[in-house]
Amino acid sequence: MNNNWLLRVRNLTKIYGEATPGVLERTGPKFDTNICSRTGAVVAVNGISFDLYPGEVLGVVGESGSGKSTLVQMLYFDQEVTAGEVNFKPIEDGNVNLFELSNQKKRYVRNHLMGMVYQNPRDGLNFRFTSGGNIAEKLLMANVFNVGKIRIRGADLLTKTEVPIQRMDESPARFSGGMQQRVQIAKAIANNPPLLLLDEVTSGLDVSVQAKVLDLIRGLQQDLGVSMIVVSHDLGVIRMLTDRTMVLKHGQIVEQGLTDQILQDPQHGYTQLLVSSLL
């Protein structure tokens, strides 16, 4: 049972600036800052550990600057880590720290085994390519060198994410924000990754569009059984999508638990404040 995890994260840490001894002890919720008083170094993520199980949806909630986006960006190798270990079952049965892999192997993990959806579609999509081309890129990264197969898979994914197929050969630059986000989701799941990272995916959208994107993500989760880490400052998103939630403040986990427990019986003062701000 305890060995069933898909992703195991231990002591993940990111410091911007000098990583002097004691910097981790001088920051965090206890000091109400993530800036070291001696060196001015910023501790974005401070010793975070958790396990993610197959098919599980984990929420990461916290205000801006709590380190939640940095956390997923490190997992997707967008950012270098300062310290910490991540083990991932599909890679050597989880016996190797992902951050010690060669860059080429990291790219393999990124392209074959993970999907990422960013808050800003420009970070996840290349607007100089068509939407079909963007999906093709992810498939080509996984060595699918067959245009026919790429077209079929692309159309299939766009249908799944409810983007009109007629717009497959158009640049997403001309799409609405909600539709850009759908193309990004289609690209992220193109290779059926076991892990999907979602970073504030609905933040820039209108409420009605938000609802549709959330419905889509929930439907995909149910259909594909993919594990997800959902980063959001919006407890509504967390409630709708996740089984389990971690609350971050100043780079540290202040509380974690079942999502219904976090929402109905928050233990930490900060979480109580967040929940009471919800309504």
Binding site: E56, A211, M240
Partner: peptide
């Protein structure tokens, strides 16, 4: 652990609250 509770909830324990709380739409 939360994973143990989730497993029990998934396989054998259900809870019917006083008011229906469902995912919208």
């Amino acid at each position: 652990t939360e994973h143990e509770v989730l497993r029990i909830r998934r396989t054998e324990m259900t809870y019917c609250s006083q008011f229906l709380q469902v995912i919208p739409r």
